[in-house]
């Protein structure tokens, strides 16, 4: 049990949902600037386990990103070299 606990303590960092903490920050598919913070360089949606958004906001976020992609505000597959 002790073996398991030690590395956890070293690396565990409390992740908080950015949309819950910052009420000013809204999810809108027209606001590509905010959405780019939640996609990888390649344009993929960053999973919840990494970025820490809550389930409700992650759901709305993914919907918004998909709409933004449809209307060419965000890439479906970005190329970091470009």
């Amino acid at each position: 049990m002790q073996q398991g606990k030690q590395p956890k303590k070293l690396f565990a960092r409390k992740k908080v949902c950015r949309f819950c903490t910052d009420k000013e920050l809204t999810i809108n598919y027209k606001d590509a600037k905010t959405l780019t913070g939640f996609v990888s360089e390649r344009g993929k949606i960053i999973p919840r386990r990494i970025i820490g958004t809550c389930a409700t906001h992650q759901r709305r976020l993914s919907e918004a990103v998909k709409r933004a992609r449809h209307i060419a505000l965000l890439p479906y597959a970005g190329n970091p070299q470009e």
Binding site: A72, L73, L74, P75, Y76, A77, G78
Partner: peptide, 14 residues
């Protein structure tokens, strides 16, 4: 006029 994130019908702007 905005730059498109990916080309649509060979257009890069829209």
């Amino acid at each position: 006029m905005k730059k498109l994130a990916y080309p649509i019908k060979k257009e890069k702007q829209g």
